[in-house]
């Protein structure tokens, strides 16, 4: 297999390192996503058949957000929100024409996140996975020890994303082979062990591979 040139690898690594969503993008998108989930669950906002994988509308998020805010507001049935709804005259939930109403797209709007992500006392924040490469490898090793190969693979893939040329890359490969073994993916483990062997790995790491299912 022809390898990529150093220039190509360097470009890809830089993009993986630097091309990230804006800091608040995930949070904003989460608000919209919750609205869509609510919309899907609400009886008056029954989606059209086959709309589970919804194509993006030509109007982008704007219409989705407006429609979503209206649906959520109606679903909650809060009197204050209803009054606001009447004043603002957003599109009616469930109205098939609402999505294509041009004035809605053109009207400036406040971001919907505050409405959809209203503070909830019982809401729990879920911590994200560690972003430190060493911590990810430790997490993977612990997961393999606990027999949770899928979690280990996820941690190792995150490691590969944020530290593709990490000095611990060989260890990452070994852990990946062990993780694949732990979830019964022997063929994959063997294929990766063959790739690993071509890289002149340290003896201690090579030993670990020979003790794995990839050597069977």
């Amino acid at each position: 297999m022809d390898e990529l040139s150093e220039a190509a690898k360097s470009l890809i690594e830089q993009v993986n390192r630097e091309d990230l969503p804006a800091a608040d993008q995930a949070e904003q998108s989460w608000g919209v996503l919750q609205t869509r989930l609510t919309q899907e669950a609400a009886p008056e906002a029954e989606p059209t058949p086959g709309a589970a994988v919804q194509p993006p509308t030509q109007h982008g998020q704007g219409v989705q957000r407006w429609t979503g805010v209206a649906v959520l507001t109606l679903a909650l049935g809060a009197a204050g929100a209803l009054a606001w709804l009447l004043v603002q005259r957003p599109p009616r939930a469930g109205d098939p024409a609402a999505r294509d109403t041009a004035p809605v797209v053109a009207t400036p709007r406040p971001p919907p996140v505050s409405a959809t992500a209203a503070p909830s006392p019982e809401r729990q924040r879920v911590p994200a996975a560690p972003e430190d490469p060493a911590a990810l490898l430790k997490q993977a090793e612990a997961a393999i020890g606990a027999g949770d190969g899928a979690t280990a693979l996820t941690a190792l893939e995150r490691h590969a994303e944020i530290a593709p040329v990490d000095p611990q890359r060989d260890l990452r490969m070994v852990l990946r082979i062990e993780a694949l073994c732990s979830i019964g993916r022997k063929d994959h483990a063997k294929a990766e062990a063959r790739a690993f062997a071509t890289g002149q790995p340290a003896a201690a790491l090579a030993d670990r591979v020979t003790r794995s299912c990839a050597a069977d």
Binding site: A26, L37, T38, A41, A118, S120, R123, Q124, V126, T154
Partner: peptide, 16 residues
């Protein structure tokens, strides 16, 4: 949690 259908596991998956 606060949104119908949004499980804690789904939120973790989303954030991670």
């Amino acid at each position: 949690i606060s949104t119908p259908g949004a499980s804690l596991e789904f939120e973790k998956t989303y954030r991670d």
